[in-house]
Write a protein that binds this DNA or RNA. Structure first.
Lengths: 243, 243
DNA sequence: GACTTTTAAATGTCAGACAAATAAAAATTT
DNA sequence: AAATTTTTATTTGTCTGACATTTAAAAGTC
């Protein structure tokens, strides 16, 4: 943990960076206890509030956790896949909402990623995951289902597909992308889409996964992508000429 | 921006959450100025240091930026793709180093993702991107190249492939994954690998992209994955029986 | 009108204090 | 001696008040 300063940034940012480097480099390992705030302020020659601002920055990234009391302090946090998920979902969601990403672009990315894990999922999906997908398809067919619940079920369905690849790294990367983009898509295609058609494609996917046929899963995902794109275009068209 | 408290977390965490919600929900739009720290401490009925800790949390996630001076303050930040990249790289790197992810798993995920954008890249790669890849291949063939420089060149090469898909969302998702995993892979396969073989496969990929032949790109990536996996197993084997 | 100076507002930083939680040590009781 | 209770020390959480620094606008000057 060096005291090397960096450009003319906030002291708290510099200190946060120094500690982050120490964590990334392995100088501070998981569950290691950082020096107390008083000691850190001594080491870095800054006041305690400044040290605290630095620690809050790290806490916001789930890099450390803090505990009060006699044996308390700040500890290097083991970054869990779940923490990483939720961070990625927040980041992706904001990225999409703030940067005027076209629907086509987002949709293309989402299905490209999902198709990447389809072959693995066809090989490895468990009976449980298949059952989850079937259950969600059943739920989607219920007449009284609200649009929100249909969307949530859609996310769960695709999440099960992704998890079927049995690769936590892939799940982490994809679930974030899918969950961030699904609401965006649902928002746009809410009004126009036909639940029957979507359910039919979901069923094709589930059937193909059951048969462990990667090609059919891929084809069905391509069809689903095209259908979604078509919907978006129809909606845009309708807005232009509302009559 | 509500004052609704949440469980028994830090006040600064609660406040950060409240402001984050306001940003995500669109209540605070990009470039909107937050109330001053004094006003926020009035609104939330806490002291200024507590407000500041909350703001630092948000700053750590690139959700806000601050400016000093008369017309200064905290402003909602437009989350750029670059910001999102660097955050994802940090997160992914730590996730891998802290969770004992097997080499096979990381490798599989990395190539699955890269293969997802290969077809798009074959369609859309620009002459520039192709030139970048050729240049990196040339660099990789230089005899005096250090291992570190070879790795960096490798990352640049694959980054160009990913960018060839011309989809910023895909680039964001994949570049993060590739950059986070590449060092891990290089670390393991440093000693054993043959630069000639890797260069040969890179050349195949570049040739196929030039010819816009997605299938050959895919095959070459599969081969590269298998080669990398084989290397890792050889290295592990050698460690077990060092004689 | 152009330039300089002043001023006000905002963040950045500091110092010192107290509250609250927590575990270990000490004291007390059984 | 063992169990329980009390005390104590340590550490984070929070507050108050102050000063430094930066910055743009307002005021003043030529």
């Amino acid at each position: 943990m060096k005291t090397a300063p960096r450009k003319t940034a906030d002291l708290s940012a510099q200190i946060a960076h120094a500690i982050r480097d120490a964590i990334v480099s392995g100088e501070l390992i998981v569950d290691a206890r950082l020096p107390s705030e008083a000691e850190l302020s001594e080491q870095f020659q800054v006041s305690r509030p400044t040290v605290r601002e630095a620690l809050k920055r790290l806490a916001a990234q789930s890099l450390i956790r803090t505990q009060r009391g006699a044996t308390g302090g700040a500890f290097v946090n083991r970054l869990s896949f779940e923490d990483a998920y939720s961070q990625q979902i927040t980041t992706s969601t904001l990225l999409l909402s703030m940067n005027a990403v076209s629907f086509d672009t987002a949709c293309e990315a989402r299905y490209a990623l999902e198709r990447a894990c389809a072959p693995l999922s066809a090989q490895r999906r468990t009976a449980d995951q298949l059952a989850t997908m079937r259950a969600e398809i059943f739920r989607q067919a219920q007449p009284g289902l609200t649009d929100e619940a249909f969307c949530a079920s859609d996310v769960t369905f695709h999440r099960a597909l992704v998890d079927g690849a049995d690769n936590p790294v892939l799940s982490y990367q994809l679930a974030g992308a899918v969950e961030a983009m699904q609401p965006l898509m649902n928002m746009i295609t809410f009004t126009a889409r036909s639940r029957e058609e979507i359910i039919a494609m979901h069923t094709r996917i589930a059937d193909a996964l059951e048969a462990r046929d990667a090609d059919i899963v891929d084809t069905a995902l391509v069809d689903l992508e095209h259908y979604t794109q078509q919907l978006a275009h129809d909606v845009a068209e309708r807005k232009r000429k509302p009559a």
